[in-house]
Each structure stands twice: as C-alpha cells, then as structure tokens.
Amino acid sequence: MTTGTTAIWGRAEQQDFRSRVRGCLLGGAIGDALGAGIEFDSLAAIREQHGSAGVTDYVPAYGRRGAVTDDTQMTLFTVDGLIRAHVRRDTGAWHPPTDVHAAYRRWAATQRDWGPDERKKDDGWLAREEWLYAQRAPGNACLSGLADDRMGTVDAPKNPQSKGCGTVMRSAPFGLLVGWEPQLVFQLAVECAAQTHGHPTGYLAAGATAAIVHALARGESLDHAVQRALAQLATRPGHEETTDALKRALGAVRQGLPGPERVESLGEGWVAEEALAMAVYCALVAEDVRHGLLLAVNHGGDSDSTGAVCGNLLGALHGETALPPAWVAELEGRATILELADDFAMEMTQGPALHSPGASSPAWLARYPRA
C-alpha cells in the first residue's frame, strides 16, 4: 500500500490541519460523552428524566460527568496505530493494517488487565495511560475479533456476520490521512474494520466514514464529502445498505425541521450504516456544533456512537475552536486526547524531522516504538 501524493505543508496549512485533527478527536469524544449516560434509554425515558428537550449537557456515566466509552478508547488506539505505521516505515516494513491491528490488540488488553504496570516498553505511551483501563460497554464483536492474534482481513474477516457500529465509531482517524489518495483511505478503513466485523456493510460503512472525514479535513463541504463517499461505495460489492442509508440521510434533510423523531426515522444506530447515516444527518442540519451533537444523542438508540461520529464530522469540518468550551473543559481524558492529536498532526506534517532510517528523535521512538 502506498500513500499516493504527499502534501506540501506551509505553516498556515499545518495550523489548520492540527485544528481539524484536534476538532475531530475532541469532537468525537464529546459526542461520545454526551451520549454515554443515555445510551440504553428510549426517547420517552430520556424526556421523562431530563425534560422535553432531552439531555442538554453531560449527564453522569461511569461515575462522572464527561466520561467517554469504548468508542473514544478505540479511536485513540486507531490514531496510535497510524502513527506507529509511519514510524515503522523507516525499517522498510509498510503494512498499516498490521500496525492498527497491533494497536487494537493493545486496546483489548486494557479491557482485561488491571492496569498498565505490566505493559512492555514497546507498547508505547498510550497503552500506559491508566485512565484507559476501564470497561465502558465494549462491543462483543470488537472483543471477540481481537481475542487472539490472528488478524481478520476482507477475504478472511473476523465475525463475518457482524455489521455493528463498532466499525464506524473508531474509523474517523483514517480520514485524517490527508496526504493519502481518497481511495486508499477508504481501503485502509475497510481492511481495519474487517479485523472485527466481517459483514460488507460493517466494513464499507467504516470506509465511507473515513472518506467523509478525509474530504472534510481537506476543506470540502459536508454535502460534497458525502457525495464523494457515495461515489466510492458504488464501486464496492455489497454497498447497497450503506449507500441507501446515506441517501436516506440526505433525503431527511429536505423533509422538514430536524428533531429526534426525524433522527429515529433513520434507525437506532446499533448497526454501522444506521449510526453513520444518523450522524451525517445531524451534522448536515446542525446550526452549530452544540445543536448537532445534542440532536445526535437524543434518541432511543446507540446515543454515544451516533454522538461520537457526529462529533468527528463536525470537529473535522470546523476545527477545535468551534467546540463548546465547557464541554471540552469537563471531558474525560482531554489531556491525553490533545497530546495524541498533536502527535498525529506533527507526524503527518513533520515526520521526516522526527525520524528517518538514519537518525531519529529518541523521545519520539520511545513514544512510538518501531517494534
């Protein structure tokens, strides 16, 4: 796999890119946290407990306000795997799905280990973040797909009947590879989704998610980004469910004022194509980030996943400064998310200054070992 054209980065372009990376990762985590406390509630139960408008702020989940779930955990390990792939390329090895799979296996260890004390040096810094060692309702397909060291592929996927939203909720970082050609971004997301979810809809929805984020991170409009994703989907066998879901999301925009009932007309979000369609719809009709995220979580379905994907989209579209400051301030893991976002942006824009086959920053290799 090659990366296609390489971007030329001026200072303004680097700053814009970093803002979009931060926005995408923080926005996804905020949407995740907004939905975490109501993930398994019906719309009627949400309104009964929180009022006719539903939740309008963080509500307690997992013992605190602003807590994130497995959606954010896995997204962070996607980023870690992508950085590691670029660093390891110095050795002559270049197969990003393998590096992302290794990162997902490090995430899986956080779901069974007590803490980071036993982690090896080669696991890097993210795997030693103690706050990540918490079970936040991880999906069964994600856990079972990563239970052994065999890597699922499109030809031989793990969980071939599964199309749960565990693919789309972790796939936005692939879209942040803005120096890559769009079809390669799509393909990488597909290959990494098949490591846990083998149904074509599961992995093609992940590819579409990455394709949309990729266009947004390059400065395109959301509507144009969705059209690009639809064009890529059309070339793939088994695309019909994902294509139909995205087209229904586009159609819903023209059907009147947005509200929870309109969101629920697109599904519940437990499966990949529904979660993507609901998130896309909410991002398309959003008056601002706050409005879009609250719309994305106030429904009787997988609120944290639809909120997370919507946050990824709006953050990549508008950048970090568009995010509500109070939500950023109270977000669990904010420091880690920002640190990882900045590392990713630095690797993508200034990687050759950090490492090469001949000379590398020891501090960088300690954070992202080549092993």
Score class of each variant (00 low, 15 high):
290 R>P: 06
150 R>Q: 12
3 T>N: 14
8 I>R: 14
103 A>N: 08
214 H>Q: 06
258 P>I: 01
129 E>T: 13
209 T>I: 00
342 D>L: 10
173 P>T: 12
88 R>N: 04
108 A>E: 13
350 Q>P: 04
199 H>A: 14
6 T>D: 10
159 N>Q: 15
329 A>D: 14
247 K>F: 00
164 G>P: 03
366 A>E: 15
353 A>Q: 15
40 F>V: 09
118 E>R: 15
164 G>Q: 01
288 D>C: 11
204 L>R: 09
328 V>F: 01
67 A>M: 09
249 A>Q: 03
266 L>R: 11
84 R>A: 08
197 H>V: 04
213 V>F: 00
40 F>D: 12
363 A>F: 10
87 V>A: 13
206 A>E: 05
172 A>V: 05
194 A>M: 08
145 G>H: 04
228 R>I: 03
81 G>E: 01
137 A>K: 11
245 A>S: 06
39 E>D: 12
338 L>H: 10
25 L>K: 07
171 S>G: 07
253 V>R: 10
129 E>W: 00
111 Q>C: 12
265 S>D: 14
29 A>D: 11
249 A>I: 08
44 A>D: 15
326 A>P: 09
330 E>P: 00
136 R>W: 07
77 F>S: 02
142 C>I: 12
328 V>C: 08
92 G>H: 05
307 G>H: 04
63 G>M: 04
17 F>N: 04
179 G>H: 02
271 V>T: 10
363 A>C: 03
341 A>D: 01
235 T>G: 05
353 A>F: 07
230 L>W: 02
340 L>A: 03
350 Q>H: 15
143 L>M: 15
260 P>S: 15
354 L>Y: 08
298 N>E: 06
211 A>H: 05
87 V>L: 11
340 L>Y: 07
278 M>N: 04
79 V>F: 04
303 S>N: 14
138 P>S: 09
194 A>D: 04
98 T>L: 10
243 T>C: 11
181 E>V: 09
335 A>T: 15
25 L>N: 02
93 A>G: 02
265 S>M: 07
201 T>L: 01
38 I>C: 02
113 D>P: 09
306 T>E: 02
213 V>R: 00
173 P>D: 08
176 L>P: 00
234 A>N: 10
370 R>M: 11
192 C>F: 04
43 L>K: 11
149 D>K: 11
351 G>A: 09
34 L>M: 07
